[in-house]
Nucleic acid binder design. Structure first.
Length: 371
DNA sequence: ACCATTTGACCCAG
DNA sequence: CTGGGTCAAATGGT
């Protein structure tokens, strides 16, 4: 299938870099044409560039996700601990051992945090959906925190031994921001088939007290399983910041989240070999575990789309309108996501990667074009 | 009936 | 001992 992965990778990188350059040019243009909003323009440019930087980074990150093949010792071990058999008598002992092993594994699991901006004005918020099915297993009041912390684990944990978990907590300083801390990567099948499910599960009019329940993705679970194809999800929220917390070197030595301003680092962390090994897996129709990147592919789209969104925001200063546009269930079929889906499944990034095509973004039904 | 969420209890590392 | 994280029975929704 992958006829020339290396070439595709290079091409993709080329496109990303080109897009980045275009963003720079756009920035220059905006600055020169509207001096009155100089700062705003600069901010816009910064955001766009940041998104591109992230996209590049995520691609690299996601490139490792072909975990089923490459195996992360940590995750595989933990997975096996769930599936191995044993005599009835030793079962209890095994379970205890497994339990301890799991706890130990969890401590060494990669952990990272995403700060997600939600839309508060309209009561809409991003689904915070990262494309996975999560099941809430606990909630705790955290000392010194205004809001409780929600604990979620992968829905398929019992069946497939997927140990991925996440914690969701609303920010004290900015209630419109929540911090999602992921732990471990998905080893379940959804990690292979799912990219980022479309926010069909976006909740409407969520109340404060419901807040911590919003992260469950149950509504999309069936869709994910029914459609083992890449459907890029669109993030209605802004993942304004991604922060690596504890990445064990022995687990993900290459795993890195450069700061948004340090673009130079990206080139260094985009080893061709990494793409060679994993990139095509991530973008093949057999799609992938966004797990770690928990989102590589999806993050790519999110970054690009967010760039567009940011642009529109800058123009319209209306974040909520955009959110509505992309979160309305009825708009799903007309959403850009499908476009992404289509191009993704063409399978040839050399020719179909559309981000350098001006029509690509203009084809989106962004509110900035309809107002 | 099944499944997800809630919530108090429990475990354990610091 | 304390607080974060997890478990599991109870509860609720479909």
């Amino acid at each position: 299938m992958e006829q020339s992965p290396k070439r595709k990778h290079s091409s993709l990188i080329h496109e990303l870099i080109q897009g980045k350059e275009l963003a720079k040019q756009l920035g220059n243009l905006l600055v020169s044409s509207s001096p009155s909003s100089h700062e705003a323009n600069e901010l816009l440019v910064d955001k766009i560039l940041s998104s591109y930087e992230k996209a590049l980074t995520m691609l690299n990150w996601g490139s490792i996700v072909g975990e089923a093949k490459t195996t992360s010792a940590t995750m595989m071990d933990s997975h096996c601990s769930f599936t191995n058999g044993g005599s009835p008598k030793s079962e209890v002992v095994d379970r205890e051992l497994d339990h301890k092993a799991v706890l130990k594994k969890r401590k060494t699991m990669p952990r990272w945090t995403e700060q997600v901006k939600i839309c508060s004005r309209t009561g809409l918020e991003g689904s915070l959906d990262d494309g996975y099915s999560w099941r809430k297993y606990g909630q705790k009041d955290i000392l010194g925190a205004k809001f409780p912390r929600g604990y979620y684990r992968c829905t398929h944990r019992n069946v497939q031994g997927c140990l991925a978990t996440k914690q969701v907590q609303r920010s004290d300083e900015d209630p419109t921001t929540i911090e999602v801390t992921y732990r471990g990567r998905h080893t379940c099948t959804q990690a292979k088939y799912l990219n980022k499910a479309f926010p069909s599960n976006i909740k409407m009019g969520l109340g404060e007290n419901q807040f911590h329940n919003d992260e469950t993705n149950q509504p999309i679970k069936e869709k994910i399983q029914e459609t083992p194809v890449g459907i890029f999800a669109f993030e209605t929220e802004h993942r304004v910041k991604t922060e690596e917390l504890e990445i064990k070197e022995d687990t993900f030595p290459w795993f890195s989240f450069p700061s948004q301003s340090n673009g130079s680092e990206n080139e260094d962390i985009l080893p061709e070999s990494t793409f060679e090994n994993h990139f095509t897996e991530s973008f093949s129709p057999a799609f992938i575990s966004p797990a770690t990147s928990e989102s590589n592919p999806f993050c790519l789209s999110a970054c690009y789309l967010n760039s567009t969104e940011l642009l529109c925001q800058q123009i319209q200063t209306s974040e909520s309108d955009i959110t509505e546009t992309f979160s309305a269930p009825t708009s799903v079929t007309n959403s850009p996501i499908l476009d992404l889906d289509i191009f993704l499944h063409k399978g040839d990034f050399d020719t179909d990667f559309p981000f350098n095509n001006p029509d690509f973004f203009s084809s989106f039904e962004l509110p900035c074009t309809s107002t």
